[in-house]
């Protein structure tokens, strides 16, 4: 596998979706390619940071309007 192949399979690799043969081929390339190793590590890190960031608190005015609208709907149409 060459560098282009690593990039093509990058998402599947970090999601653990590659079959064993392909995974071994990719990791063999990583064993001698410093650039691809950094790209893989940095892309993993990118996904981790963005996925694990907690959503900020809902602004209180937005929360209030949402619950007011909901209660109005509940009165109009009880389940």
């Amino acid at each position: 596998m060459n560098c282009k192949g690593v990039i093509r399979e990058l998402s599947s690799y970090i999601d653990g979706d590659l079959d064993l043969a392909m995974k071994q081929e990719l990791e063999k390339h990583l064993g001698h390619c410093e650039d691809c190793t950094m790209i893989v590590d940095q892309t993993k890190k990118t996904v981790e940071i963005l996925c694990d960031s907690e959503p900020v608190a809902l602004p209180s005015d937005v929360h209030t309007r949402l619950h007011e609208a909901l209660r109005r709907r509940m009165k109009e149409k009880p389940n």
Partner: peptide, 23 residues
Amino acid sequence: AAKAGDTAAFEELVNRYERKIFR
């Protein structure tokens, strides 16, 4: 519970997910 008419249960679901849905 919400399907059975428990509005507090539905509000609990809203409280649980509102931040994630807003994001």
